[in-house]
Write a protein that binds this DNA or RNA. Sequence first.
DNA 1: TCCGTATGGAACAAATATGTTCCGCGCTCC
DNA 2: GGAGCGCGGAACATATTTGTTCCATACGGA
Lengths: 185, 185
Amino acid sequence: MTQTDDPMLRDVATALAGNLGASMQELADEAGVGRTTLHRRFPNRQALTEAVARYALSETDRVMTACGLDDRPAPEVFERLAQEVLPLALAYALLWAEPPITEHGPLEAELELLDDRFERFAVRGQADGHLRADVPARWIVYSVGSQAMAVWWAVRAGFVGPREAERLFRLTTLDGLHAPAAPPA
Amino acid sequence: MTQTDDPMLRDVATALAGNLGASMQELADEAGVGRTTLHRRFPNRQALTEAVARYALSETDRVMTACGLDDRPAPEVFERLAQEVLPLALAYALLWAEPPITEHGPLEAELELLDDRFERFAVRGQADGHLRADVPARWIVYSVGSQAMAVWWAVRAGFVGPREAERLFRLTTLDGLHAPAAPPA
DNA sequence: TCCGTATGGAACAAATATGTTCCGCGCTCC
DNA sequence: GGAGCGCGGAACATATTTGTTCCATACGGA
């Protein structure tokens, strides 16, 4: 469906996520490619950011579908989300943190659609009794997204290993930071 | 201790957090001030980003101190953190999301110090049995920070009211998104 | 080897961002 | 009203970024 297996686009997206507002030169360097080549691939900056935004959107869509977001029970969805948390976080870092990247009009609407899709999942999870119902469904979207970015940042900074990311995301997002069972004595 | 009551600095910081990599013109517009005036206050871009970074650092320090991060019991600290979550989130959005802003050398070290300080709190909370001990203390720093940013984004986008932010942050960060008591049956 | 192709560096023109100067406006205080 | 003051627009010079062209080189297949 989406041919997201373009290594150069992936590298540029990663570089851009780590350094929003980087110049073409910096992006080319970080992607390990000459500025000229980058330019052949993306005629101008707008084309580049648009391509990156499309990549992020299609990745998000892919992950959501792969996780059975639209029909699976919430616990199973979170289980699978955890496995895909790093790609998801990359996409969110690109789409959320920076307005300019989606300011291309129709893409902003697509992002909105994906957020709505996630919100519907949250509503379903709340109705099922799997997710807490005393918070707005939309807040669940934000919370999950930010936790995904948190693991991504933590991995990038070297504080947690990529494999650990999955566990931390699952534990923290669902159960929070409170000690599980043990109040004092 | 810190005279953070400079409205212009605050406005610029807010504008910058919402649009990393904005031009001087854009920042001036968003702060409701002429580019010339902005320039009188901050001779060049580096001075501006440095001032903003200092502001964010001092705000973080202020919030941490106000929350009794260094000595109060974890539940109380979270209670107070929730009350200051929006200023904290603004600071974190500036300090974390964008490398350029702390790339000024010594400021990066200061940020590191604040993160360490928070990590010590996490370790203490884990030892006390208030915070879960099966995750790295450093991860707690990232998780809390990202949740703070999440409420900030959600407020900014208009999905939650500023007053609601406090409650959402507290609930979600500590207890997660799982439904509290009600498994199936 | 020779050819076709893609890459990336160098050099350039154009656009944009930045830093600076000057001047007029409105405001306040006297 | 008049002097002093800070703000912000206009205009400018400089620096940086962007977009383009040309060419030398490296690689792979015929």
